[in-house]
Structures are given as C-alpha cells and as structure tokens.
Write a protein that binds this DNA or RNA. Structure first.
Lengths: 159, 159
DNA sequence: TATATTAGTTTGTATCACGTACTACGTCAA
DNA sequence: TTGACGTAGTACGTGATACAAACTAATATA
C-alpha cells in the first residue's frame, strides 16, 4: 500500500510523527551548533533571547523557561559570570525581587544569534517555493499557538 | 506593511524562523514530557529508539547520536543499569568491539514510547485537515532529507 | 615485526535540572 | 501592631549529560 491523499490511517500518522520529530531534532541541532560557536549552551541562548524585550525576575523566568526557580538561579549565575546578564535591583518596590537584565555584550550576542539562526533556517528551507514556505510557516505557527505554548527564543509581539 | 503572499522579505523570514524554532521546542517538550513519565531522559529514549532495528557499537552510536564516544559509553552504562540495554560481544569477529542490544524491557518501553509520541503528535495537529497534515509532513520530511540528517528516534525503513 | 589505527573505557571538568531547606521581605488578619 | 503565612531568591546535594584527554587492548598496515 502506497501513501495516497487523504489517508488518516496508521501509516500516515507514523509519517507525520517521524517527520516532525526529526525536524525538531534538526532545528535543535542547528540551534545547538550556532550556540556552540559562541561557546554558550542552548539554555543560555533561550535566556538571552527572552531578555531581549523583558526584564523579568527569577520566578517569571522560571515560568517562561518552564524550569524550577532554583535552576534559573544557577542559570543566571553562569550567564552573569560570562558577562551576558546582570542582576539589577527593583527600584525600591520589592526588597526581595531582582530584575535580570542583558548587558551590552549580552544584547549584541542575542542579536547576532538571531541573525545566524534566521540564516540557517532559511538555508534549510531553500528548496521550498516561497508559497510553500509561507504555508509551512503559518501551519507551524498554528500548531504552536493551538498548543498554548509559551514562547522561548524570539518572544513575539511585545504588546 | 502587512504580510501578503509571496513576500520573501525579512519579515517573512522572521516569521518562518520563529515558527520553526517554536515548533521544535514544542515537539521537544512533548517528547521530554513523555520520557519523564517513564523516568528516562530524552537521550535515553533516542538511544533505545535507535536500537529498535540495529545493534550498533559505541562508535557507530556516537555517530548517529552526534555525540562523543565517551559520552555514549556513559549513556549506555546508565541505560544498562536501568535494564534497558545490554552490551553483547561480537561473535569473535573483533575482540575490541561490542554490540549494544535492547533488553526485552527496553524493547517494550521503546514500543510504548513510540505509540505515545504518535498520539501526542496527532493531538498537536488535530486542527489541520488531513490534506494539510499530509502536505505539512511531506514538507517537513523534505527539509530533513535535504539537510542530510541522520535520523534519531524512529530509525526509518530497514530495507 | 614495528608502528599506527581503532574500539571502548576511565577520569576530570563544566553544565544543567531537580528537590529541599533556608533567608529575607511582604501581606494579611486578628 | 504583631504574628502567621506567602513569596522571591539563594544554597546545597544529587544525578544526568557532554566533552576532552589519557589510557588499554585488539587489529591493521608498513
């Protein structure tokens, strides 16, 4: 039995599963490779990506990254040791809370990183026609939003 | 300027990048969540996925997983400690080499895992029509094969 | 045979993620 | 006001992951 249009059977599901899982590994490997060029981990990249348009506290970061706050505390420690972020005080509002802020160096890296990722992704999809690319992107976006996922690398609209 | 058909500009690239990166995080999170139900790591799952239709040595595994062989050695150690895999001798052909083989328990887990992943992915794409799903899967597959990636979770056809 | 290569392990280092326990600050109610 | 509770963040211990470098043992090759 070959795969023809409209089959919602087991074979089609397996194809879809394989394709999406493999695609996700491919994207992650791409991100990891670029992160490696900058000698930071993928998690560090997610961190500075989030910080591009926010100045969250540890708990808020833990929520966005879906990590325990103790994990984030250490994560910020290491990013700080590398000069990517700083802990800034909340201006008198709350004596416990801090804000995690990008340094100039961290901001530069975040920007460069985003560019390199965009290039790498563009290279991956170069065989698709622009129309196919657009459909593909919009369906991917639809799947993501339908899942109610919190965004991670490129936090979208600021509003 | 809004995004209309056929724009190959910066905005469209950013959309595509975001969508694919976020989709990859979504899929990975899905895999990680299921792996967590079985109290194994995502890497362990990749390992037993590969072993479903092969009996590779450490170096071959390192190649497929894109890890250092020393990493794989430890990975297999831990999987072995959990009764998922075993180190079997190559039958006299090469005194140095071993084969990494699934145990019955490991095989059961690999099968169950694959089923649960398929269900979860199907749930993610439930809003797309079958035709859209098919197109989406085939384009994803096209991207993966064009990249020359080695597969990781569901090693494809044995033929 | 002597040398080089290969398969795999071991050791040391760094990161990551978790849970628990702890400190310090805030909030709320009696 | 003060005492109980909740919250933000850190510290510590554990286990997994990944790497590089050094090592052993077996195999290839000159």
């Amino acid at each position: 039995m070959t795969e023809h249009a409209g089959t919602t059977n087991r074979a089609a599901t397996a194809n879809l599963t394989d394709a999406l899982v493999e695609l996700s590994f491919l994207i992650q490997a791409t991100l990891a490779r670029i992160a490696n060029d900058y000698e930071v981990s993928l998690t560090q990249v997610r961190l500075i990506g989030i910080l591009r348009d926010r100045e969250p506290g540890i708990v808020e970061l833990a929520d966005v990254l879906n990590l325990d706050k103790s994990s984030v505390s250490g994560l910020v420690d290491r990013a700080q040791r590398r000069g990517l972020v700083e802990r800034a005080s909340t201006k008198g509002t709350d004596g416990r809370a801090i804000r995690v802020v990008l340094t100039a160096h961290g901001r530069t890296m975040a920007t460069q990183f985003a560019e390199r990722v965009a290039e790498a992704i563009a290279e991956l999809v170069k065989d698709l026609t622009p129309a196919q690319r657009e459909r593909f992107a919009s369906q991917a976006a639809r799947i993501v939003t339908a899942s109610g996922m919190s965004r991670s690398l490129e936090p979208p609209q600021t509003r």
